[in-house]
């Protein structure tokens, strides 16, 4: 029951974050919302695992946490340099 309440709260927050991701004027707004959606998905997995008493969902959550970090940094690097290659390649051929 307590997990169901927390799940509802996280779902409300995810809906608001999706609204910002769709509306956000700049790409950084969308990225911020996407990051929050990623964290919300991890929390949702953990809470759902506890609610149904299947804690195996936590392993999936750990994977999502690591992927979320890598994905955000990769997109940010793309925005900064215009490519995902090494810096020395970018000096020769800025994208």
């Amino acid at each position: 029951m307590m997990f169901a309440a927390a799940i509802i709260a996280v779902l409300i927050a995810l809906t608001l974050a999706v609204a910002r991701a769709l509306a956000g004027p700049t790409a950084f707004d969308r990225l911020l919302a996407a990051n929050k959606i990623g964290v919300g998905a991890i929390m949702l997995l953990a809470l759902f695992g506890f609610m149904t008493e299947r804690p195996e969902f936590l392993d999936v959550g750990i994977t999502y946490a690591l992927l979320n970090m890598i994905g955000t940094l990769a997109v940010l690097k793309f925005f900064r340099y215009g490519a995902l290659g090494h810096a020395q390649d970018l000096d020769r051929d800025p994208g």
Partner: peptide, 10 residues
């Protein structure tokens, strides 16, 4: 936790 998470989304 749910409260603060929703506050962040607002």
């Amino acid at each position: 936790g749910g409260f603060f998470y929703v506050v962040g989304a607002i």
